[in-house]
Write a protein that binds this DNA or RNA. Structure first.
Lengths: 344, 344
DNA sequence: TTGTAAGCGTTATCAT
DNA sequence: ATGATAACGCTTACAA
């Protein structure tokens, strides 16, 4: 059987015995069309199973109705939740979402910028997540609208949707100090990342409020991945029980999970011998033993808002591009924090 | 500042003082161009920061260099892993991946088919995952190439990448029976799904081999979600300890996790009082207490292969479209299985 | 080796 | 209310 050519508007026009423009008017609801003729067109569309060619539309309209979503990985559930939020907002507007996962093995920024410049993407929701230099984002931003999620660049105020990491970190740390911990260590995120800085600042504020010397608190720098959590926990807990930290403040759940795994392997009981807190509230965190005390980020909502902000940027006049305030990060009290074995 | 129009090939041609086609030849490596002129073109491209308009290309080439990935949700890590595999294969070919997450609240099949027909997508990798009628997929398939993942439609042999669920299920169940369990219950997946059927069949084979009457084994039908696992576990374990099952065969990890949560809440110790197995080997499963005995599906690889198969379908002649054999599913022995408290 | 010109399938402007 | 017709930016015969 010969595979038939897909019908074009021309075919529809001929079938309905009207002109090309009439078909276009009907399809887009622009321009007036006599009821009888519009029915003929609609019929033809149905009969021929016509559907408009997206590439031609994009070319003519100068808009792809597609946005990009840059995430470092999908298996991190936080990113997955953000992605679902983005997808939901886009779907409501009949906009496609292209998944961009920068290959770790290459310099991805140039490729992304090219992609954005190629007009196949109208804009980008960007979640650097791990590492990635701020300057690269600035470069990207020259090619088209970019909205940052879970990230911010202090000097330049790019649109960004973040939550109040500093406050969340401060509160969860306060909870730890209120249990009487005095020797704590921080397992932080990549120091280039805004979230890592904010969380560290939050921890320090809480420590200061608890009367500790913040300079005395060891800060081990991880990369937000589970493995680094395990490795750094091992490092932090190397000393004898009497001198090592009684609590670990982990800048995200993944590293807290790594730390917890280390403790299990090393026979350190949590929370009896060591208290542990994370950040993100991944779905898994409530399933661990002990259930992890952490800070919830409204991931889905963040993604949704970021996409919404991007759309506002793309069609000015619709709504003010503002409104990307700071979302709340809420402490989830669970079982991984207890008073230190030896108070003081 | 006035925002400057993006450069087109025409601009490049003028800047380089060559014709349009010469630029095209250089950019696509088609047609011979004198070294000196090619440099002029490349220079112009750099100076003007030109990058080709993707929509125009797609229109002319009749190919969007974009595929769709249909997944029910991203927060399920199995799907996320598949997605990463798809993304990786696509990225290697400079093909974009559009994320399609069917909204549960509407009939998505028609929308997807329209999308595929609109030529914005060259093909689709389809993971129904939960529910979704096979017939809908057949309909979709009329609009363009579709490769199924983790799913199969018995009658019609659509290209599909699956792993050997039946064998995996049989082996993990055998492991349970070898511990001496006689009273077991199955928490199965949606009966319309191939994977659910296969796993159930595997469990039954193992039961038969262990000398049990397969008709005696209660099968509770879940939906592959955590909540249904919890609910069905409660139902299965409602009886007194002497008569209720001593082991639960769960058709996926999510339901096993739900079952485990129920047991914790109900004070049933796993594996001492109840053995539990899952299927999928989600990253979280090894972090649970007890660590979940389950069957690993090579999710990433499945996604990668599915995408690869789709590309083969799209450019015939490159490689034979075959090769989507059945991948192995391997049992992961961990801590959630133990002999029943009261043997026999 | 280089250039001209005819589409690709839409949308939008302008007459009618 | 309807219909020619000119773009949109690119690829590709075909001509030179």
């Amino acid at each position: 059987m010969a595979t038939r050519r897909r019908p074009t508007m021309k075919d529809v026009a001929e079938h309905a015995r009207v002109s090309l423009s009439t078909v276009s008017y009907v399809l887009n609801g622009t321009g007036p069309v006599a009821p009888e003729r519009r029915d003929r067109v609609l019929d033809a569309v149905r009969v021929l199973e016509y559907s408009p060619n997206g590439s031609a539309r994009s070319l003519k309209r100068r808009r792809a109705s597609t946005i990009g979503l840059v995430v470092p990985e999908l298996t991190n559930q936080f990113f997955a939740m953000v992605a679902e939020g983005v997808q939901k907002a886009a779907s409501a507007r009949d906009v496609l979402v292209v998944l961009v996962v920068p290959d770790a093995t290459e310099q991805p920024e140039e490729k992304q910028a090219t992609l954005l410049r190629s007009q196949r993407l109208d804009g980008v929701v960007y979640l650097s997540g791990t590492g990635s230099l701020p300057t690269a984002i600035l470069e990207l931003q020259r090619s088209g609208p970019v909205v940052l999620v879970d990230e911010q660049i202090p000097g330049f105020d790019l649109p960004a949707v973040v939550c109040d990491s500093r406050r969340g970190a401060r509160e969860v740390a306060r909870h730890v100090f209120e249990h009487g911990h005095r020797r704590v260590a921080v397992i932080g995120g990549p120091s280039a990342l805004w979230t890592a800085q904010q969380r560290l600042a939050g921890y320090r504020e809480a420590a200061a409020a608890a009367g500790l010397d913040t300079d005395e608190i060891p800060v081990l720098v991880g990369d937000y991945r589970q493995e680094s959590g395990a490795r750094l926990a091992a490092q932090a807990l190397a000393g004898p029980p009497g001198t090592r930290p009684t609590a670990l403040l982990c800048a995200n759940d993944l590293m807290a999970i790594g730390a917890l795994e280390h403790c299990k392997a090393a026979g350190i009981r949590v929370p009896q011998e060591l208290s542990l807190v994370g950040f993100d509230d991944l779905p898994v965190s409530g399933l661990l033993t002990p259930r992890l005390t952490t800070v919830r980020q409204p991931a889905h909502d963040m993604g949704f808002r970021a996409a919404t902000a991007l759309f506002d940027l793309l069609e000015p006049g619709d709504a003010p591009p503002g409104g990307l305030g700071m979302l709340p990060a809420t402490v989830q009290l669970r079982d991984s924090v207890a008073p230190p074995a030896v108070p003081g």
